[in-house]
């Protein structure tokens, strides 16, 4: 694919360098700088007020017996195990449906994409009303059908409830990626298969899916990263009276550890573990893509 790109020559290269410089500088200082700082801080005890103290690997050793961290790790893995497949499958289905000649296609695309561009804080408040135990929309419906109210955001159900909100919020982004992938599939492939007598279902499984493999892998990696980093909806929907959460995930836990309890070193170590997990998963995916994607 890279062979098809346009290559810069001569003076153009210098101009590209100059024009990219501000962005690259921001990336280097902002992103790489804070990654390096987080990595470095994970070997220190630091409460943000007094000078950091070198403790070596102690923060990492402590994580092994940290009940809050283990609980958060479990929650994040459970969250991802539901969120990633649901996001990929649903956004693929939506993209396939909206790639046809449907009446009001643009409107539907807009509606599915809307959650991506709205503020999670505002939308989170709407969802908290839907899920509310006493005055909530869902429980009113259950009540009208003669069923007992469910504590949607309590510690038993909250994991599922926030997965639903996060998937709902992510379908739009996945849809855009899959629509781009779908439109890159040449029409004549479908026409040829039609002549051979393949119906829409066969076409979907034997043409659409195989040709979309790169998009599917890309979307899976993106969803995995988003899943492990999910924070905003979880913070708004599950925050409890004392600043805790009914489903504390990794990012929620390290936020509280660092900014509420002033254990920056410990929070940094958790962030490094989180980054390492995402990196390993990404490597596995790209390995699988190389194996199956050809």
């Amino acid at each position: 694919m890279s062979e098809a790109g346009i290559r810069a020559k001569g003076r153009e290269r210098i101009w590209i360098g100059i024009l990219l410089f501000p962005t690259l500088l921001g990336l280097a200082v902002g992103a790489l700088g804070s990654i390096a700082a987080t990595f470095g801080l994970s070997f220190f005890d630091w409460d943000m007020f007094t000078p950091p103290q070198l403790v070596g690997l102690q923060n990492y050793v402590d994580l092994l017996s940290d009940r809050k961290f283990k609980k958060a790790l479990f929650n994040s893995i459970a969250f991802s195990a539901m969120y990633v497949p649901a996001t990929v499958i649903l956004s693929l289905l939506v993209a396939v449906l909206l790639n046809r000649h449907v009446y009001g296609k643009s409107l539907f695309r807009l509606l599915f994409f809307l959650p991506v561009v709205t503020s999670p804080t505002a939308v989170g408040l709407v969802w908290s009303w839907i899920y509310s135990k006493d005055q909530g929309l869902l429980n009113s419906i259950l009540g009208a059908m003669g069923m007992d109210p469910v504590y949607w955001l309590g510690s038993k159900m909250a994991l599922y409830s926030v997965v639903v909100v996060n998937v709902w919020g992510a379908i739009g982004e996945g849809m855009i990626i899959f629509l781009a992938g779908l439109q890159a599939i040449p029409r004549d492939v479908y026409e040829a298969s039609m002549l051979d007598g393949a119906g829409p279902v066969k076409q979907f499984f034997y043409i659409t899916i195989p040709l979309l493999i790169p998009s599917i892998f890309f979307q899976t990696i993106l969803s995995t990263i988003n899943a492990f980093q999910a924070f905003d909806y979880i913070y708004i929907l599950t925050k409890t009276a004392g600043g805790g959460s009914t489903v504390p995930t990794l990012v929620f836990n390290l936020y509280r550890e660092g900014f509420n309890f002033f254990r920056m070193g410990n929070a940094s170590a958790q962030a490094v573990v989180l980054a390492a997990m995402i990196m390993v998963l990404t490597l596995i995916y790209s390995h699988l893509q190389k194996k199956w994607g050809q």
């Binding site: 409890t240 009276a241 004392g242 805790g244 509420n260």
Partner: peptide
């Protein structure tokens, strides 16, 4: 941190 360790399970 102590209030959280006490208050979270109780809630």
């Amino acid at each position: 941190e102590w209030s959280a360790a006490v208050g979270d399970p109780l809630s």
